[in-house]
């Protein structure tokens, strides 16, 4: 039986990867803590680890315009999945990595996926990392995702982390640690929506160690109903570098958001900026959309969708 014959898998797979079928090229599909499909390509090797669960993804130098898909899915209740994935991106490579985790929990036991991802971005390599987290199912069991991301960017390297968590994850603690050498660049675009009694915490620890290194960290989040969020960003400028972090949050109903920025310039040539804004949807935004014929609820949905687009 093919994986796609399982309707729960198919739906979750589509939601996490935006794909309707098993991808072409390099991929690794993890289902309920086990490997469910794997393919290496001429330039991208996927090798299972022997000492712990997980894989090494080795991308050859100068690999251009290739992608790797590594979704991790949990469709059974009571699973606690822990995985270690290491990405070695060779010099001058330019690749897209699509990851993400979906938990479908119809049962009463907790289902959890904890992924530890390490990225070693080679000299002048470029990586776009797209990760989507989602929870589905009607069970009382919680859906928990705690990702850890560790990034080392070599000279002239670039990594952009696009992470999205828009529904169904009851609790998440996301930690991201990154170090950049000379002219290395780290870009983070994070989107989070929480509802019900969900809790989401994201922590960033960025060290800009080389001259010309930079980070641009943009987080947009919406906390609805009784959900809570915490955003912690620590940026250390240890060289002639540029650091910018921006945390924008909309709070609705009884939602609570905390933002804790910490920027430290350890070098007189470091330029670091933090912007944080938390507030409800501006009344005039709702009013404007109502003058275009939207109801108050439609206006609110439009503003939230646009904000997290």
């Amino acid at each position: 039986m093919s994986l796609m014959d399982n309707k729960i898998f198919e739906k979750l797979f589509e939601e996490v990867t935006n794909l309707h079928s098993i991808p072409i090229g390099a991929y690794n599909i993890r289902l309920n803590s086990k490997a469910a499909g794997r393919n290496s390509s001429a330039n991208i090797d996927i090798i299972p680890k022997t000492d712990k669960p997980g894989i090494d993804i080795i991308i050859k130098p100068n690999t251009k315009h290739e992608s790797v898909h590594i979704p991790a899915l949990v469709t059974e209740t009571g699973i606690h999945d822990l995985v270690y994935n290491d990405f070695y991106i060779g010099e001058n490579a330019d690749v897209v990595i699509v990851a993400g985790c979906g938990i479908h929990n119809d049962g009463d036991s907790l289902s959890q996926h904890d992924g530890v991802h390490r990225f070693f971005v080679g000299k002048n390599a470029r990586v776009l990392y797209i990760e989507k987290h989602i929870g589905t199912g009607d069970g009382k069991g919680e859906r928990i995702i705690n990702p850890q991301t560790i990034v080392e960017v070599d000279e002239g390297g670039y990594i952009e982390l696009q992470t999205t968590q828009l529904k169904g994850v009851d609790s998440t603690l996301r930690t991201t640690k990154a170090k950049a050498k000379e002219n290395g660049t780290v870009v983070v675009k994070e989107k989070i929506l929480t509802h019900g009694t969900q809790y989401a915490e994201t922590r960033f620890d960025i060290d800009l160690n080389g001259d010309g290194s930079s980070v641009n960290l943009v987080s947009r989040s919406v906390a609805k109903e009784k959900s809570r969020q915490k955003f912690v960003s620590v940026i250390n400028g240890n060289a002639k570098c540029m650091g910018h972090s921006e945390c924008d949050s909309i709070i609705m109903d009884e939602g609570v958001v905390s933002s804790l920025p910490e920027i430290t310039a350890n070098n007189v040539e470091a330029t670091l900026v933090h912007e944080a804004a938390i507030g409800k949807i501006a009344g005039e935004q709702i009013t404007k959309l109502m003058t275009l014929g939207l109801t108050e609820a439609e206006a609110e949905a439009q503003i939230v969708n646009g904000f997290l687009k």
Binding site: T291, I303, F307
Partner: peptide
């Protein structure tokens, strides 16, 4: 406001509203 908009009243604000993402 919505009902009036639907029956044919439009209004251009003196200070237009900004929207992030729209």
């Amino acid at each position: 406001i919505t009902e009036r908009a639907k029956i044919g009243i439009s209004f251009a604000f003196q200070q237009p509203v900004r929207f992030k993402g729209v």
